[in-house]
Simulated assay, not measured.
Amino acid sequence: MIRRHVVVSGEVQGVFFRDTCRRTAAEHGVSGWVRNRADGSVEAVFEGEPDAVGRVVDWTRQGPPAARVEKAEVVEEDPEGLTGFAVLPSG
């Protein structure tokens, strides 16, 4: 089990980034959360098997078709044992 904290910047709000992220994580069996940030970026946490988390993190570097990702900052963190995947209120 691994955990990655990702902040994605660019044109990533208003393009269904969070909902598509939730669906992508669910398809790969990854737990965590995603939310918009006040600065226009999107923040997400992914927990799960290394290969699955890696695939979802790779997806964030592109995002959904309408997104224009400029940068995805990825930080390794200790897993917290999250279950399910949530779209959180903006933070």
Rank of each mutant, 00 (worst) to 15 (best):
M1R: 03
M1I: 01
R3Q: 13
R3G: 08
H5R: 10
V6H: 13
V7S: 07
V8Q: 06
V8A: 10
E11Y: 13
E11N: 04
V12C: 11
Q13G: 08
G14W: 10
V15N: 03
V15S: 00
V15L: 02
R18G: 12
D19T: 02
D19A: 14
T20M: 14
T20D: 09
T20V: 15
C21H: 05
R22V: 00
T24W: 04
A25P: 12
E27R: 15
E27D: 14
G29S: 05
V30N: 06
G32H: 00
G32K: 04
W33I: 01
W33Y: 10
W33L: 00
W33D: 03
V34T: 02
V34L: 09
R35L: 10
A38P: 13
A38L: 15
G40W: 13
G40I: 07
S41M: 12
V42K: 03
V42G: 03
A44F: 04
V45L: 14
V45G: 06
V45N: 02
F46E: 10
E47I: 05
G48C: 07
E49M: 04
P50C: 01
P50G: 09
D51E: 14
D51M: 05
V53E: 06
V53P: 02
R55Q: 11
R55M: 11
R55I: 00
V56N: 01
D58S: 14
D58I: 07
W59D: 00
R61T: 13
Q62I: 06
Q62L: 14
G63D: 05
G63M: 12
P64M: 14
A66G: 02
A67F: 10
R68S: 13
R68T: 11
V69I: 07
K71I: 07
K71A: 15
K71M: 14
V74L: 04
V74Y: 12
V74K: 04
V75K: 07
E76I: 03
E77N: 01
P79N: 06
E80F: 10
E80P: 00
G81N: 11
L82K: 01
L82A: 12
T83K: 14
G84H: 09
G84S: 05
G84Y: 08
F85C: 01
F85R: 02
A86F: 11
V87P: 01
V87M: 09
L88M: 15
L88P: 03
P89M: 04
G91H: 08
